[in-house]
Amino acid sequence: MSDTPVRMSVQQFAARTGLSAHTLRYYEKIGLLRQVARDASGCRVYGPRDLEWVGFILRLKETNMALDDIIRYADLRERGDSTREARQALLVAHAAKLQERLQRDREHLDALQKKIELYRQQTTA
């Protein structure tokens, strides 16, 4: 992240994260983004740590973690080091769900590939 500016406006941060300014404000409202810095004019200013945190939020979302669980993780994170075990437990549970989903997806992919191969055999016959 050496090319990450130290301070980013909402527009710059939105461009870096792929999220809209509206979504960033929503994340702040529901407690996913906390303690967002403000400049002298009161405009939001984001830094590298915010970028890293939003990247993690997006990873959790992309792996289908429920929004309530992401908010719970954010709450625990905000409370500090004393919540490390609880955060780890939340991630372990999510990883187990993700592993189950990957296994189901592999099974579905195998079934699709078998069907595709069947069609290929019928086409060349």
Rank of each mutant, 00 (worst) to 15 (best):
D3G: 10
R7H: 06
S9D: 06
Q11M: 05
F13P: 09
A15T: 11
T17F: 12
L19P: 10
L19W: 11
A21R: 12
H22A: 07
T23E: 09
Y27D: 00
Y27T: 01
E28M: 01
I30A: 01
I30V: 13
G31R: 01
L32N: 07
Q35N: 15
A37P: 10
A37R: 15
D39V: 03
R44K: 04
Y46N: 09
G47I: 04
L51R: 05
E52S: 12
E52D: 09
W53T: 01
I57H: 02
L58R: 14
R59H: 13
R59Q: 11
T63D: 05
N64G: 04
D68E: 10
I71M: 00
R72G: 06
Y73Q: 01
Y73R: 05
A74F: 00
D75K: 00
L76V: 07
L76Y: 11
L76N: 08
E78F: 04
G80F: 02
G80A: 06
D81A: 07
S82I: 03
E85C: 11
E85T: 15
A86Y: 11
R87Q: 14
A89M: 05
L91P: 06
H94P: 13
H94Q: 15
H94M: 15
L98F: 13
Q99G: 08
L109R: 08
K115T: 13
Y119V: 03
Q121F: 08
T123D: 12
